[in-house]
Amino acid sequence: MTSKIPVSDLLAHRDGEHVDPRLSAEIEADSESRAHLKSLREIKHALNELPGVEPADEVWQNIDQRLRLNENLERQRGFKQRYPWANLATAATVFFAAVLSILWWNPGDEGVTGLPTAPLSDLVLRSQQLESQVFYPQAKRRVPAGQLAWNSSQQALLYRIADVDSELNWYYEDQLPDPQERERLWRQRVELLESLVEVQRRQKPSLRMALY
């Protein structure tokens, strides 16, 4: 289909844009142009009649997951802003855990140190073992920082561990003699680390794929 009048002019006429009245008259007088114009209107109508497209079901799930992840990251940023010394506190707690576990290797020293009873020492030791289980494999593989990002569940657990560590840190700094509270915190730390190990274990196949 061809007409003497350029498509751009026919489109302008179709859309009611400002056009020269002589051009409008020319279109009306020419059957080819009229047919072309009709075709342009039909195409526009067909485009406007196209239906919406339902996205796949997993799109909403992905959105939900991303929102949660962003929330966690936001919370992490907020935590770091509020407690800029949190990393230091975590490191200090890990150091405490290491020192305490070394001390408790020798059961005879318990009375001398005046430090926790056997169940508590077990918790501290277990906490240390779990911690090396979580962090050691990454260090061993020499994965560059940032390449192996924690997923949202792992991040959530790490924040909670950091919270417990802060509490433990305050506890040791203030030297409050409350063995029950101390034991509760260490037990909580062990449980959180166990969850982290479990999440990491489930993730391993995808982790390998990401690495190789």
Binding site: M1, V7, L11, A35, H36, S39, L40, E42
Partner: peptide, 13 residues
């Protein structure tokens, strides 16, 4: 629209 007319509009005619 030149292409659409050929592929769609023309075909309808």
């Amino acid at each position: 629209y030149q292409t659409l007319t050929l592929l769609y509009g023309g075909s309808r005619d």
